[in-house]
Design a protein around this nucleic acid. Structure first.
Lengths: 236, 236
DNA sequence: TCGCTGCTGCCAGAATCTGACAGCAGGTCC
DNA sequence: GGACCTGCTGTCAGATTCTGGCAGCAGCGA
């Protein structure tokens, strides 16, 4: 196995563990000595991987994605830059910042000439006109990532308010509004919720009992089937 | 110099040349023997770099970006995926395809677990409702990249049509429309053109005499200055 | 205090990379 | 056709890098 492949493997193994893992364990897993493992960890850290080691405990990898060397065509990089610029203009500030960070991260590792090309990518995104929602969508995204139940107050199209406890699994971005898709515990059905009609968002910390991938798949199947209605806007 | 850094350098040098470069030249440039150069080229090709070698001529790199190993946080990868999904829904088919390709390329090099996470990134983009423009925006983007003059027929808000020859340097994406920003040769001023009002697009193949970066900068300065009007919609 | 762990320096052996040479194939130019 | 340039592959010895084992220091918790 080549060294670069081994490094990717190492990240992968670290990623599987939430608790700290000892260097000894990691070294056994990838089949090298403990000494080489320390060198590999140092190399990965040098490449920007957020690996933290603590004496007496072990190593933890902050959640993240490791990409190997990659080649993009001009149009592909244009697409990525344009897309990230669009995200960078979203009202969801944390996500917008992440998009900007990602672009900066890519630019940082590029040679000067390529960086200039990136800056000069002349695809622009117009300003957004609609009002931002009152809630922090970052909380919704976090709840989706962690598969946690979410409580909030919802005001439907008619103006009637209701308290909700849901299992969120997707967030859809439309031109004007953002919509959370979730399984509603009270109604026992899929519902979608416009972000600008939600308030009093509260993460419960309680893990919901299904996988978000499975729920997404089921919801999509419901959308395709002609005899079903899929998710309804949460008025009922 | 480490081998990986050398490979990045090699791509960079190849990128500077539009004409084929001989292996001998490249080998001298990065300070290795011709034999090692062949090995490096093979390695790069193995990593997906579109380098083409022809006997009697030399090497050419198709336009593209090489990224070294890179680490992204969860939110950063969410932002990139969401952005690319948005681009993938643009009416500009070539750009949309490029966005899809870029995502596929990223997914292809990831270990299974990470790929699943990527697929399951539950940020969705809603469908686009507005009508697509009649022209192929890919031609506009190509003209911008190559800094070539562009001819077309423009129908302004009042319905009056006029023939135009412009120096395009930017393309702006709004919710409903896409707008090309260019220097208009006839009016001798910056103008912007709604893509849905353009027709009969024709690349001239003639390079315009300024750099697109410089024009973009000047145009932006015009937008900021309160006493100037920046680009006007091309009615005059 | 002890045990566990991260981390670094050192050094010899293993693995890889590199350069030189030879040879073949495909193109251009005369 | 012939001379020449170039890409590409095989082989092999020497240079370089990587690796594993050992020793030692430091931080943390019991």
């Amino acid at each position: 196995m080549s060294r670069s492949a081994r490094l990717l493997d190492l990240v992968q193994i670290l990623r599987r563990h939430r608790r700290p893992v000892s260097g000894r364990t990691l070294a056994d897993a990838i089949g090298v000595s403990i000494r080489t493992l320390y060198r590999d960890i140092a190399t990965l850290q040098g490449q920007g991987a957020p690996i933290e080691g603590e004496a007496g405990l072990g190593y933890v990898l902050k959640p993240g994605f490791m990409l190997p060397p990659l080649m993009f065509t001009d149009e592909e990089i244009e697409a990525i830059v344009l897309g990230s610029r669009w995200v960078a203009k979203q009202p969801d500030k944390r996500l917008a910042a992440a998009a900007a960070d990602a672009l900066a991260k890519i630019a940082a590792v590029l040679p000067d000439e390529l960086r200039d090309d990136l800056d000069a990518t002349t695809l622009l995104v117009g300003p957004r006109s609609e009002n931002a929602e009152a809630i922090d969508l970052g909380i919704v995204r976090q709840a989706i990532r962690d598969e946690r139940k979410l409580g909030f107050l919802y005001r439907d199209a008619g103006g009637a308010a209701s308290k909700r406890l849901v299992w969120p699994f997707a967030l859809a971005f439309f031109d004007k509004v953002r919509v959370m898709v979730a399984w509603c515990e009270t109604r026992q059905d899929f519902r979608h919720f416009r972000a600008d009609r939600m308030s009093g968002l509260a993460t419960t910390g309680i893990r919901y009992p299904r996988r978000r991938q499975a729920m997404l798949k089921e919801w999509r199947a419901g959308l395709d089937a002609p005899d079903r209605n899929g998710a309804k806007d949460a008025s009922g």
